[in-house]
Amino acid sequence: MKTTEFNIAIAGVGGQGVTLLARILGNAAIKEGLSVRIGEVYGASQRGGSVVSHIRFGENAFSPIIPNGRADVLLGLEVSEAARRIRALKPNGLVILNVYKIDPVEVKTGLSEYPSISRLVNAFKLITDQIITVNATDIATDLGDVRLSNIVLLGVLAGLSVLPISIKTLRQSIWGNVPLAMRNLNMKAFKIGFNLRNP
């Protein structure tokens, strides 16, 4: 599947597996001979910090950073983090949100407020009508490992048939990029996510 430009911004909190998703998508793209650029910042943003990965496919995607308003998809592993990265999304772009929040320290200690999830989700309507909400963390927890929520969301994205990558390649890339012992569980998580929109 060829594309001249397709951009995905993945937002989340350190430890949620944002960079793993980027690696899975990047490796899959290379396998299909699709040009790929991934932009990330490592170092200070680990361990509970705000994390974003920019994944860009196609010949017209030169820079590793998605220019403002050019992301086709914004994938939020945490709701407020997706809101923080909204500037990447193009008007009426696709937003996939994990209905899950992780309180920052300031909120936990009562120094700052976390808006209600419904208020956050509704706010995205200012930019787009394409908002998909998933309880990925709940699904992952039921599967036995909360860390699988990123793969559930990837499954949802794959199920929407918007990616310029085949499902087969994507599945292979998950298989090759997750720890050996976790392979089957990850495939299961992907399948559940995939079927959420393709019953």
Binding site: S45, N68, K90, P115, A123
Partner: peptide
Amino acid sequence: HLTPDIYQKYGEIEKLAPPRYLSFC
């Protein structure tokens, strides 16, 4: 022109996100 002219709307969503500063583990 490079970016959509609806910056203000982006700002309204952005400002809902509570700050997530670096913190001690």
